[in-house]
Nucleic acid binder design. Structure first.
Length: 895
DNA sequence: GCGGACTGCTTACCT
DNA sequence: ACAGGTAAGCAGTCCGCG
C-alpha cells in the first residue's frame, strides 16, 4: 500500500473523453473538443523556455546551444505533456586537462589566442594508473568546439603539435573527447531520467518519500556490504525506484511514391513525393495524412475504428502538417526514422522550398534529432544485440518492423503486393497506419515496458534518452564509469595509456584470432539421463569482478607488495590496497540485481503494475551486467583493458574446475557444464548442499540450483542438448532443428519430435515415443522422395547476408550465390538482408525460392539435412536414421 | 587431371 | 563495435597419385 503512490505520477488525460463515451464512439458524431484542444496545442513559441517555476518534470535530454553558449536541458512535464527547455544557470564551461604546467601552456600562442579560449587553472586530481595525486592544468573554453571536434585548430590537437619536440616531457591532453553535454551532466551531478523541478529559475531534484523508504530498507538485505558498496547499492536503487511518467508520444511513418518497387527511395536525394504519413499516438490519435493525386481512387479498404484520413492538396501542406505533429509531441517514435522517414522529409521539404527554420528536424550524419522533442528510433533500439537477447529474450530474430512486431506483439505489417502508386487511398492509408500502430505498440505493450526500459537505462548510464536508445551497451557502461571518475576527482585516463601501462594478454585462445582464452565447456556424457540437476553461478563474471577487485586500476597495480596476489594460471596480480571503481560499480549492481530485483520481479504478491516495473529493472540490470566483463576485452571500449578480461575468464575457469573436482569428491557424476553451470546426474540433497557449501566458502561466490530436468538428452556435441523440465516444457539448446536458417519443412519435423519427447515421463515411455519419432522422420523422408511438399517456401533456407555483396571476395557461400541471382533480376540487396534459397540439382546448386520450381530441387541434399538434424538426437535415443529409412525401402519393396 | 584431406570462411548458436 | 567457444556446411587449396 505505501508503494502505491509511486505510480500515481501520471499525466492528466489529454482529452476529457470518458470511457463511456468511448464505447459508443462510433455511434456519436465527431467530438468537437478533440479538434479544439488540438488547435490549442499547436505550435508553441520556440524555444519553449521553462518558466521560473515548473512542477516536477523529467530530465530527458541535454544538449548544447551554440548561440547562447550554454548547456540546455530538455524537461518533460508529464501533467501537460509538454517539453520545456531549461538553460544552464551555473556558468559551467567546456574544458580539458593537460600535463603542461600553467606557464608552459601560456607560452603556447595558438592556445591562449584561440578564439574560444577562456582561461586556465591548476587542478589536483587522482591519477588512477599511478595511484597518486597529480597536478594538471585545466583549460577552460567558451565553446566545446575549441577543445575538440573541428577538423583542425582544436586545442586538443594544437598542444601536441606546438609543444617542442625536444622537450623532456611528452605532452598529454585528457578528457578532450567527452561530449560537452555529458561533461556538463557529470559535473553538475544532474541525473538524466530523474525528476526535477524548476524553482526560482534553478533546477532542483524532487524527492519521493516512498521510494526513499524502500531504499532505506535495503540496508538489511546487504549486511555483508561495505559502507562504500552500500552507498552505491542505494544510489542505483534510487535510479530504479523513482517513478516513471506516462510518455505522451506519437509514432509516425511515411510512404513515398516510387516508380520501382524493388528500390527503396534514397533519403538523401528525396526525388519522389511523400504521399502519405500516418500517426498513432498516446492521445488516441489514429490519423493518416494523404496526398491527393490525380487518378487515384478512394477504394473501400477497411480502416481501424476511430481512425481518420485527412487529404492534402499539396505535398507541402502535407509536410507542414506532419511538422506540426513534430512540434507538438514530446516523444516521436519511428522505425528507422534516422535513416529514412525524418531524413527524407528534411530533404524533401528543402527541395520543395520550405524554410529550414520551419523544419523541426536537426539532421546529423547518422541521426535525426528533433528541435522540440525527443526522437526515438526504435529500429536502433531493437537492433541492439544486448536488448534483443537479454531484454526481449530473442523473441525476434530479424530487426524488421514485421519481424519485431510479430515476435514481440504478434502483429504483422499489412501484406501488400502492389506498388505504392497502385494502391487506392484507403489501401495506402490502412497499410501506412498499421506501420505506425506496430511502432507505437512496440512501446506500449506490457505496460509501456520498452519506454520504461529506455528510461531506466537513461538513468543508469547518465545519457540523454536519444543517445541511450541508439548507442550500444559499452557506451552505457563507459558513461556511468566516467561519471564516477569525475565524482571522485579521478583523471579519466586515455585508452592508449591504459594499454601501455597494463599491457596485453598472456593466455592463448582456443579460437584462432582471439586475444585470450575464454570459458570452459565440459565434454557431455552422451545418452538419455533422468533427473538432471542444473546448478549455476548467477552473474558469474560480475561476481568475479566484485570478489576479486578487478578493474583497470587494480590489475597489475603499481604497488610491489601486491604482486604476490596472483590470478590463477595467469601472470597478473591484483591490488590489495585500493578498491577498483569497476569492481565497486559492477559489484554493487550485481548485488542489487541478485539480492533484490530478481526476487521482486517474480514476487506475485506485488501489484501487477509494480511487478512489471521490477521486471523492467531486472531486465535493464541483466543487459548491463551481461556485458560488463566483455567490454574490458573490446578495443572500442574507452577503458579497454585486456588483462582484466583475461583475468575474469581465468578465474571463471578456475571456479568451474574447482566445482568439477569437488563434485567428483562427493561422488556425483557431472554430465555437462558450460562456463558457469554444471549438470549433475541424479544428485542427493546432501550432495547439492555440499557443492553449495563448498562454493560459498572456498570460492566466496553464490551458486544456485537453477532447474531440474525430468530427463536430458546429450549427444557428444558441446552446446547441443535437449532437456525436458518437470512441467513438460522443453529446453532445446544449439540443435540444428532450432536454428533459424533451417527450412520450415525440417524444423516442423523437429518440433513434432520435440512435442513427442515432452510427453515422456519415464524410461518405459521412451519405447513408444521412439516408434512415433521414427514415423515422423519416415513421413518427412517419403514426402521429400515423392516431391510432395506443400510449397517451395517450406524448403527455403533463410540466411542473413552478413555483409554487402561486394565484400565476399574470399569465398562465395550459397546464400551469396542466391543473392547475386536476385541482384541480377533487379532486386536491391544490402547487408543484413535475409536471403531465402532452395538447393537445386544443377549448378550453381542454389536458386532464390521465388525462382525455383518443384522438379529442380535437389531432394538428396534435403534428405542429408534431415539426416544430420535428427542424428543429433537420434543417436542418443538409440535410433538410427538409416534404419528408419531402410525399413521404408523394405516396405516399398514388399508392396 | 582427380579426389580426399585439409584449412578457412561464414553463419548461427551457447554462456 | 561487449567477450570467447562450438557446430555445421561449404568453398577453396594442397598433395599424392607412377
Amino acid at each position: 500500500m505505501p508503494q502505491k503512490s509511486l505510480f500515481d505520477f501520471s499525466p492528466q488525460p489529454k482529452k476529457p473523453a470518458a470511457p463511456e463515451t468511448k464505447k459508443t464512439a462510433e455511434a456519436l458524431p465527431p467530438q468537437p473538443t478533440v479538434t479544439q484542444e488540438k488547435k490549442q496545442r499547436k505550435r508553441r513559441v520556440y524555444p519553449p523556455l521553462a518558466p521560473e517555476n515548473l512542477p516536477a518534470s523529467y530530465f530527458v535530454s541535454a544538449t548544447y546551444d551554440g548561440r547562447q553558449r550554454k548547456a540546455v536541458v530538455k524537461l518533460y512535464e508529464p501533467q501537460s505533456g509538454d517539453i520545456y527547455f531549461w538553460y544552464d544557470n551555473t556558468g559551467h564551461k567546456p574544458y580539458c586537462l593537460t600535463n603542461l604546467s600553467l606557464p608552459d601552456l601560456e607560452k603556447m600562442e595558438r592556445v591562449v589566442n584561440h578564439q574560444g579560449y577562456n582561461h586556465s587553472e591548476i587542478l589536483e586530481v587522482c591519477d588512477p594508473l599511478a595511484d597518486k595525486k597529480i597536478t594538471v592544468t585545466k583549460i577552460v573554453t567558451d565553446d566545446p568546439l575549441a577543445v575538440g571536434g573541428k577538423p583542425q585548430g582544436s586545442i586538443r590537437d594544437i598542444i601536441p603539435e606546438d609543444y617542442p619536440k625536444d622537450a623532456p616531457m611528452e605532452p598529454k591532453v585528457w578528457e578532450a573527447k567527452i561530449k560537452y553535454y555529458q561533461s556538463y551532466i557529470y559535473d553538475t551531478r544532474y541525473l538524466p531520467g530523474m525528476i526535477y523541478e524548476v524553482k526560482n529559475g534553478s533546477l532542483v531534484p524532487c524527492v519521493f518519500e516512498e521510494a526513499e523508504k524502500t531504499i532505506a530498507n535495503l540496508k538489511g538485505l546487504f549486511k555483508d556490504a561495505t559502507d562504500e558498496e552500500l552507498e552505491y547499492v542505494e544510489e542505483w536503487a534510487r535510479l530504479i525506484e523513482y517513478p516513471a511518467p506516462k510518455f505522451r508520444r506519437a509514432a509516425i511513418d511515411i510512404e513515398v511514391y516510387a516508380p520501382l518497387s524493388t528500390r527503396v527511395p534514397d533519403s538523401r536525394e528525396a526525388v519522389y513525393p511523400v504521399v502519405c504519413c500516418s500517426l498513432y499516438s498516446s492521445d488516441d490519435e489514429k490519423k493518416v495524412l494523404v496526398l491527393k493525386r490525380p487518378g487515384v481512387h478512394e477504394g473501400n479498404c477497411p480502416m481501424p475504428p476511430d481512425s481518420q484520413i485527412e487529404y492534402y492538396e499539396t505535398e507541402e501542406a502535407l509536410l507542414r502538417a506532419v511538422f506540426d505533429i513534430l512540434w507538438d509531441y514530446p516523444f516521436i517514435l519511428t522505425f528507422n526514422g534516422d535513416d529514412f522517414d525524418l531524413r527524407y522529409m528534411v530533404h524533401r521539404a528543402s527541395n520543395l522550398g520550405i524554410d529550414r527554420r520551419d523544419i523541426p528536424i536537426d539532421i546529423g550524419r547518422r541521426v535525426c534529432l528533433l528541435r522540440y522533442g525527443i526522437h526515438i528510433d526504435l529500429y536502433k533500439f531493437f537492433f541492439n544485440r544486448a536488448v534483443q537477447i537479454y531484454a526481449f529474450n530473442n523473441r525476434y530474430r530479424d530487426v524488421t518492423l514485421n519481424d519485431v512486431g510479430k515476435g514481440v506483439l504478434g502483429m504483422e505489417k499489412i501484406k501488400n503486393e502492389k506498388t505504392i502508386g497502385e494502391l487506392t487511398y484507403t489501401e495506402l492509408a490502412a497499410y501506412c497506419l498499421r506501420d505506425s500502430e506496430i511502432t507505437y505498440k512496440l512501446t506500449s505493450f506490457e505496460d509501456e515496458l520498452a519506454m520504461k526500459l529506455i528510461l531506466v537505462l537513461t538513468r543508469i548510464s547518465s545519457m540523454p534518452m536519444e543517445d541511450v536508445s541508439r548507442q550500444g551497451v559499452s557506451r552505457w557502461i563507459r558513461n556511468f564509469m566516467h561519471r564516477e571518475h569525475r565524482h571522485r576527482h579521478m583523471l579519466i585516463p586515455n585508452s592508449e595509456d591504459i594499454l601501455a601501462e597494463k599491457g596485453k594478454t598472456s593466455t592463448t585462445a582456443v579460437i584462432k584470432g582471439k586475444k585470450y582464452q575464454g570459458a570452459i565447456v565440459v565434454e557431455p556424457v552422451p545418452g538419455v539421463h533422468f533427473n538432471v540437476a542444473v546448478m549455476d553461478f548467477p552473474s558469474l563474471y560480475p561476481s568475479i569482478i566484485k570478489v576479486w577487485n578487478l578493474g583497470y586500476q587494480s590489475i597489475r597495480c603499481p604497488h610491489p607488495e601486491c604482486k604476490s596476489n596472483l590470478v590463477p594460471n595467469t601472470p597478473h596480480w591484483v591490488c590489495t590496497k585500493e578498491r577498483a571503481l569497476e569492481s565497486l560499480l559492477i559489484g554493487s549492481l550485481r548485488d542489487l540485481r541478485v539480492s533484490w530485483y530478481k526476487n521482486r520481479a517474480k514476487d506475485k504478491s506485488l501489484p501487477q503494475e509494480q511487478q512489471n516495473w521490477y521486471k523492467v529493472a531486472q531486465g535493464a540490470l541483466k543487459v548491463i551486467l551481461n556485458a560488463s566483463y566483455g567490454v574490458f576485452g573490446a578495443e572500442s571500449f574507452d577503458l579497454y583493458c585486456p588483462p582484466v578480461a583475461e583475468a575474469t575468464a581465468a578465474i571463471g575457469r578456475h571456479s568451474i574446475n574447482q566445482i568439477l573436482s569437488h563434485a567428483k569428491a562427493v561422488g556425483v557424476q557431472v554430465l555437462y557444464g558450460d562456463t558457469d553451470s554444471v549438470f549433475l546426474k541424479n544428485p542427493t540433497k546432501e550432495q547439492i548442499a555440499e557443492v553449495i557449501h563448498f562454493t560459498e566458502h572456498e570460492l566466496k561466490m553464490g551458486i544456485d540450483m537453477e532447474k531440474t530436468y525430468r530427463y536430458a538428452v546429450f549427444s557428444s556435441r558441446k552446446k547441443n542438448y535437449l532437456g525436458v523440465l518437470e512441467d513438460g516444457s522443453v529446453d532445446v539448446k544449439g540443435l540444428t532443428g532450432k536454428k533459424k536458417h533451417i527450412p520450415i519443412f525440417i524444423k516442423d519435423a523437429f518440433n513434432q519430435m520435440k512435442e513427442r519427447l515432452a510427453q515422456v515421463k519415464n524410461p518405459a515411455d521412451f519405447e513408444k515415443a521412439k516408434k512415433d519419432i521414427a514415423d515422423i522422420v519416415r513421413t518427412r523422408y517419403m514426402t521429400l522422395k515423392r516431391r510432395e511438399w506443400q510449397d517451395m517456401n517450406q524448403l527455403a533456407f533463410n540466411v542473413v547476408l552478413g555483409d554487402d555483396l561486394a565484400h565476399y571476395t574470399k569465398t562465395t557461400p550459397q546464400h551469396v550465390k542466391a543473392a547475386l541471382v536476385l541482384q541480377t533480376s533487379g532486386v536491391e540487396i544490402k547487408a543484413g538482408d535475409l536471403i531465402s534459397f532452395v538447393k537445386t540439382i544443377r549448378p550453381p546448386h542454389v536458386k532464390p525460392v521465388e525462382l525455383a520450381s518443384r522438379n529442380e530441387v535437389d531432394v538428396d541434399k534435403y534428405i542429408a539435412y534431415l539426416h544430420s538434424t535428427f542424428d543429433q538426437v537420434l543417436d542418443a535415443l538409440g535410433l538410427s536414421f538409416d534404419e528408419i529409412i531402410g525399413l521404408t525401402k523394405l516396405e516399398r519393396f514388399l508392396a
